[in-house]
């Protein structure tokens, strides 16, 4: 394995400053071109408008609305979330990153980046969707909580999968295929949760809690496994 620079000498402070440096670089690179974000957001907008247009303004039942919402979110996320690692391999900066920065700080900074990316995506998609598909949100706070929890879980689960896909050359829809089994429970619970927010009856907080617990769990597992995906012999 490549001897990565140990952060233990500098302690937590070193890890923290590494993370901040990585994040600053990632955001600067991303927002210089806004490539991934543009594609994901335009995709979401096109799909939402297409659905609204073809439905001809007829409102869907609550269950269908939340299925469509999560389908749009899922595929938009699949368009953008792998970009953070695929870019490093494409621009051949991965090797440099591997040697110069500790593995742990890379994983933490990339997952923070993905979380922020996902949040931006949700902030754009959800109002657009609510606006165009005449979604009647009854429990607004719960709706926002469910969407946010689902987004956090999706971003947490896909970070390490993005690293794997980048290693495989970032080929087309491979990311979608390998993410699907891992994201299935998340989508399932999220759909249930948002459907609850669209109904009159008081929603149960089990679903968002499950989503947050799941994202914490999968983040920890990914953190442990990231070393064997990222480092090379």
């Amino acid at each position: 394995m490549t001897p990565a620079r140990s952060s233990s000498a500098a302690g937590v402070y070193g890890l923290g400053s590494d993370i901040i440096r990585n994040l600053r670089k990632d955001f600067r690179v991303e927002f210089r071109s806004r490539f991934a974000l543009n594609i994901a957001v335009s995709f979401a907008a096109i799909v939402t408008i297409a659905m609204s247009l073809t439905a001809g303004g007829a409102p869907f039942p609550a269950a269908v609305q939340s299925i469509l919402l999560w389908t749009v979110i899922f595929f938009s996320a699949m368009n953008g979330l792998s970009h953070i690692f695929v870019r490093e391999e494409d621009q051949a900066t991965a090797l440099f990153l591997r040697v110069s920065v500790t593995t742990d700080s890379i994983f933490i900074s990339k997952s923070i980046f993905n979380q922020v990316f996902m949040m931006i995506l949700l902030i754009v998609i959800t109002p657009l969707f609510v606006f165009f598909l005449q979604v009647n949100v009854i429990h607004i706070a719960f709706f926002i909580l469910s969407v946010a929890a689902g987004g956090i879980a999706i971003a947490a689960a896909t970070t390490i999968l993005a690293a794997m896909v980048a290693k495989a050359g970032g080929k087309g829809s491979l990311f979608t295929i390998i993410s699907f089994p891992v994201l299935l429970p998340i989508l399932w619970v999220s759909i249930n949760s948002t459907t609850g927010a669209l109904r009159q009856t008081a929603p149960s907080y089990d679903n968002p809690v499950f989503l947050l617990a799941f994202s914490g769990f999968i983040s920890v597992i990914s953190f442990l496994l990231f070393r064997s995906v990222w480092l090379e012999d």
Binding site: A63, V64, I67, W70, G172, S173, I177, W188, I191, N192
Partner: peptide, 20 residues
């Protein structure tokens, strides 16, 4: 990969549907 993703989409639809 294309065929697989099509298959996944077909499988996904009823799962999502019955989930909600």
């Amino acid at each position: 990969i294309l065929v697989l993703s099509a298959a996944l989409a077909v499988i996904a639809a009823p799962v999502f549907h019955s989930a909600a």
